[in-house]
Simulated assay, not measured.
Amino acid sequence: MSAKDHIATASDPEFAGRVMMIMFKVAQNVASEDPATANHAERIAYASFVIMGNEKPQLVSAHVISSNPTISGAIDSDPAALGSNVPDGDIEFALASIWDARSLAFAAA
């Protein structure tokens, strides 16, 4: 693992743009989820923050990369690809996986 390669990918406008588009998809899914979902109030507040365009895609990209070994492994296997070898489905899975952590951190701020 090279943190420099991960930083370069998280900072890449194309990769961060992909993360941003998929963030909107996940935010919409959260906005439509069952209100009985654990941490729903925090999840919906963070979804609103994302939908209104207030989140920083490069920051979320770094969280996605650092939290998901499949994504970081793909970047490690071909650093020059800057994440173009990471399927959108993997990004969506990673975002859904970190949504509670991000929403609870957002609520605490």
Rank of each mutant, 00 (worst) to 15 (best):
S2D: 12
A3K: 15
K4S: 15
D5H: 15
D5Y: 14
T9S: 14
A10W: 07
D12R: 07
P13A: 01
E14Y: 11
E14C: 08
E14L: 11
F15L: 08
A16V: 01
A16S: 04
G17P: 00
V19P: 01
V19K: 04
M21N: 07
M21V: 06
I22P: 07
M23H: 01
K25M: 08
K25R: 13
A27C: 01
N29T: 14
N29E: 15
N29A: 15
V30C: 00
A31E: 05
A31T: 05
A31Y: 05
A31F: 08
S32Y: 10
S32V: 09
E33L: 13
E33T: 10
P35C: 03
E42H: 00
I44S: 06
I44N: 01
I44W: 08
A45T: 00
A45C: 03
Y46V: 02
A47G: 03
A47P: 01
F49W: 05
M52D: 11
M52V: 12
G53H: 03
E55T: 11
Q58R: 12
Q58Y: 10
L59C: 08
V60D: 00
A62M: 13
A62V: 11
H63E: 10
H63W: 13
S67G: 09
P69R: 13
P69C: 12
P69S: 13
S72M: 13
G73N: 08
I75R: 03
P79N: 02
P79V: 04
A81G: 04
A81I: 09
N85K: 08
N85E: 06
V86Y: 01
D88H: 09
G89C: 09
D90V: 11
I91A: 04
E92A: 07
E92I: 07
F93A: 12
L95N: 03
A96N: 10
I98D: 05
W99N: 00
D100E: 06
A101D: 04
R102F: 04
S103L: 04
A108Q: 11
A108W: 09
A109F: 11
